[in-house]
Nucleic acid binder design. Structure first.
Lengths: 149, 149
DNA sequence: TTAAATAGGACTAAAATAGTCCTTAATTGA
DNA sequence: TCAATTAAGGACTATTTTAGTCCTATTTAA
């Protein structure tokens, strides 16, 4: 239907482990052992999460990674864009002219709204929700209409 | 952020051309000419849309493709899954055991809910919305809470 | 019967993603 | 101060997915 990469999936698993002991510092090796994901891959993901300011790192012996915020404030949207960049659902692949000639082209604008709708959905779910199974996220309604003003 | 393939994007362009003259039969060559997309690619997309029953085809000379339904009843969700299959946002990539040991694992269940949220968002936008720029879709609210019962 | 279309599937090419590895830098503690 | 431990950064390779093309068979109208 729609896809996020495998690394993003791994990231949620790693983060959920960390969220269960949110003030602890975890070494990459430790997280690799617990999750079963290969160490180089875990490292790569952790680096990306640090760059996105989702994690804080400390170097040196006794170093490692820690959540930068409360799990309630880490959104799924943030995790996804940390791993995959701010890629939209689609950027009109054909030339702008052709697009406009061909169809009038509200498509480009409308995809943008669809992107926003999905982004809102992903903003409404946090790491805390992922860890506490089936919790109701804070924003219960996504007002699609408000996007279409 | 999240991605659909280029073919899906092309498909919306092709469908929007067809939606503007919804009872006409369009040959693949004609659609290729109008949209600027290469003929073999257009053909491939049209075949996929026929398989998904979004289009009806007629063979032989004077044959071509026509919308199977009113644009109001062709959802963006249907178009995406026609082109990309019913692939969810993620299928937990690590082993089930590891996942459960590691995190308790509400993640799998919660991803499912996120998938549904997004699916609902995409169900709420139709081809008619794409063609009529900035129209308000019928369902204005997506009740996320209802998914979390 | 011929020309104009689509159907289906095999195949190739290109691009994106995942995964690994190496070198450098920082920190701790003996 | 040195050795051990751990992350940072980036280059590289391999794999997988996606896009794109092409060929042959089938259907239909004139």
């Amino acid at each position: 239907m729609i896809r996020v990469g495998r690394l993003t999936d791994y990231a949620t698993v790693i983060l959920s482990v960390m969220a269960k002991d949110k003030n602890r510092v975890f070494a990459a090796m430790e997280l690799a052992a617990v999750t079963g994901i290969a160490l180089p891959t875990v490292s790569k993901i952790l680096k990306m999460l640090v760059n996105a300011k989702i994690l804080i790192s400390t170097r040196g012996s006794k170093g490692g990674y820690m959540l930068a915020n409360e799990p309630e404030h880490i959104t799924v949207a943030a995790v996804i864009s940390a791993l995959e960049g701010p890629i939209a659902l689609t950027e009109c692949s054909i030339s702008k002219q052709a697009c406009e000639q061909a169809s009038g082209c509200g498509i480009r604008a409308n995809w943008h709204l669809i992107n926003q709708t999905i982004h809102n959905a992903l903003e409404s779910v946090t790491l805390a929700d992922l860890v506490r199974p089936l919790a109701v996220p804070e924003e219960s309604y996504i007002p699609v209409a408000s996007l279409y003003q």
